[in-house]
């Protein structure tokens, strides 16, 4: 079994009489790109805030590389870099100075931090703005600064809370590319998001969370295969309608001149369907595939849309 970067065991938390987390379990192996997917208010931020020490838990445990985040907080916090959802504000210092401070909190002196900070500012396109104050940056730049701040102490684990919330399409793609690059360089990444596309594109595995409970976990592909509603609809030509259909080894239903196949991997089954139908001289007018997404998975698990 691969080493676990993060282990969250039966985590519970309530605010007054509202249960925010009702026993959350998450295992994230080292080097994985992991997504915590759920609607707003599902418990994503509470989970990572407990993991990083911002919120007290009621019960349960969080371990980082096998060490408890409460009793071994110096070790566990030094392993984690966090880009919070809410952008912070500072009135006093340049962003370069803020990065030096951040490195200092993690025990890295200015001389050692210099190279890392220079390279992060360059890589994230903030070099020209390094003497600016945070409030002088655009929203997108603030978001990039947030990520630079999380990486300044070169943590093994990067936690991103809704990193692309309120970000334009171009920057979103830029950030995705950068996150992939970090992942390829060996970082373990925990991302919370309510963007289906983000989870599908980036994550090796996701856990779907709603109302403080993990409903399902797995790779985006396996989840959509198991719970999605994918299929193929074949429209036959008029003259083929009355022909006897071949006994395909698939679930299907016929409606007028349309045959609908419920399959998990439409792209793999299409050649077989075409082959079988043409071999029986049944002419095809058109073929439409419906691939399901994690959105369908969420819908089938909760009966509601993730953006509700």
């Amino acid at each position: 079994m691969p080493e676990l970067a993060i282990q969250i065991k039966d985590l519970k938390k309530s605010y007054q009489d509202v249960f925010a987390l009702k026993g959350v379990n998450v295992d994230i192996p080292k080097g994985e790109f992991f997504g915590l997917l759920g609607p707003n208010g599902a418990g994503k931020t509470t989970t990572i805030n407990i993991l990083t020490g911002l919120v007290f838990k009621d019960s349960g445990n969080c371990l980082v590389f096998g060490k408890d985040t409460v009793s071994n907080y110096r070790f566990t916090r030094s392993k984690i870099g966090i880009a919070a959802q809410e952008l912070s504000v500072d009135w006093f210092f340049s962003i370069e100075n803020l990065l030096f401070f951040q490195a200092g909190y993690y025990g890295i002196n200015r001389i050692d931090a210099k190279q890392k900070i220079d390279s992060l500012l360059k890589r994230l396109g903030l070099n020209k703005k390094k003497n600016s104050k945070l409030r002088q940056l655009s929203g997108g730049m603030k978001r990039r600064f947030q990520i630079a701040k999380a990486l300044v102490h070169d943590p093994d684990i990067l936690i991103l809370d809704e990193p692309t919330a309120g970000v334009d399409v171009e920057l979103r793609h830029e950030l995705w590319n950068y996150l992939r690059e970090l992942h390829n360089n060996g970082k373990t990444i925990l991302l919370t998001t309510h963007y289906i596309e983000e989870a599908e594109l980036l994550c090796d595995n996701v856990s779907i969370i709603d109302e403080g409970k993990i409903l399902k976990k797995g790779s985006p592909k396996s989840l959509t295969e198991d719970l999605g509603k994918s299929g193929i609809t074949v429209q036959l030509t008029q003259e083929s309608i009355d022909k006897k259909l071949p006994m395909l080894d698939l679930d299907y239903s016929i409606e007028d001149s349309r045959i609908h196949f419920s399959v998990k991997n439409p792209e793999l089954v299409i050649p077989k369907i075409i082959q079988e139908l043409t071999s029986k001289n049944i002419a095809i007018h058109s073929i439409k595939t419906e691939t399901s997404s994690l959105e369908d998975v969420f819908l089938s698990l909760t009966g509601k849309s993730i953006n509700e």
């Binding site: 911002l54 916090r77 952008l87 912070s88 504000v89 500072d90 951040q102 909190y105």
Partner: peptide, 14 residues
Amino acid sequence: LLQQLPDLLTAPLS
């Protein structure tokens, strides 16, 4: 109020 405190509370500072 300016959301800076989390930077300190999530760092390895006692």
